[in-house]
Amino acid sequence: MSFLEINEVSKFYQTHKALDHVSLSVPEGSIYGLLGPNGAGKTSLIRIINQITAPDTGSITFDNEPLNTEHIYKIGYLPEERGLYKKQKVWEQMIYFGQLKGLSLAEAKKRSEEWLVKFDLREWKNKKVEELSKGMQQKVQFIITVLHKPKLLILDEPFTGFDPINSEIIMNEIKSLKAQGTTILYSTHRMESVEEICDHICLINKSKKILDGSVKEIKKQNSKNLFELVFEGIMPTWIEKISEEPTDEGLTKLVFKVKNMNRAEIIKRVANEVNVWSFREIVPTIHQIFIDKVQEVNHA
C-alpha cells in the first residue's frame, strides 16, 4: 500500500520547468530513494510535499487523503542545507521546533530529553549551538527533524557533514525508524548508501522521472546479460566476448555476454567445455544505472 502518491505533478518557475508530469508512489514503511543529479527537480518535489510551494498541476495523496495543511505535523524534513539558530541554546531550540511541529511544551521537553540522552548530548543542552562541533550540530538537526515522530520522514542528503562514526549512528537511527513503521523519502545523488538502505528508488533527471521501482527489479531490468568467468582451458566460441585477461594464477578471466539463455543454462554449458574456477553474473550497480540513464537522456 502506498503512503505517498504523487500524481502527474508539474511545477513551473518563470524561466524553467522544475517538474514535468512526475508521478511516483512511495510504499508505506519503506525507504524510498529519490535520486537525480543536481538541479533535476528533487528539491522542488520535496518542497511541494512539504507544502512550502504548491504544484501547478497534479495532485498528491498523503496517507490516503489529499495533501492538506494538517499533514505538515506528520512530516519531518531534514533539508540539504542545514540551519539552526546559532545563538540559541540547543535545548530551547529543540523545544521550539518541536512546538512548531505541534507538540505540547511538556511533550517537546520530554522527547528532547530522551533524544539528548540517546545521542550523548546531555551535557551540551544548555550550550549555544555555535559552541557545538559540526557533527553535534548535525545531530541536533536530526533530532529536530524526528522529534514529533513524523509518519513521513524526508531526508535530503542526510549524511553530508557527518564523519563515518556519526554516519553510522544516523544510519542506524534511520533503520530503526523504518522498523517502527516510518516511511522515509531519501533524496540523494550519492549512490553508495542507496543500495544499502533503499527498498525503492525513483530517478529524476531534467524535471522528468526516468525510472522507478524496487531496487531488485530495477537491477534486473537493467541487467545487461554480462557474466564473468575465470577458467582453464580453451575459450568457448558461442559466447560474445567483451574482454579477456590472464590472471596471476595462469588462468583466464573472461567477461562475456549471452542473450536468450538463463544463468543455469549458461553454467551448465560452460562447465561442460572448460574447467570453471569461478562464475558470476555482473549485476549493474545503482550507481552505474544512474549514470547510464542520465547520459542516455542527456544525449537523446
Partner: peptide, 14 residues
Amino acid sequence: EEKTNRIVEIIISS
C-alpha cells in the same frame, strides 16, 4: 539570518 542560515526552510515546512 534565517535565510542565510537556511533555518527558514525548516520553519516554513511547519
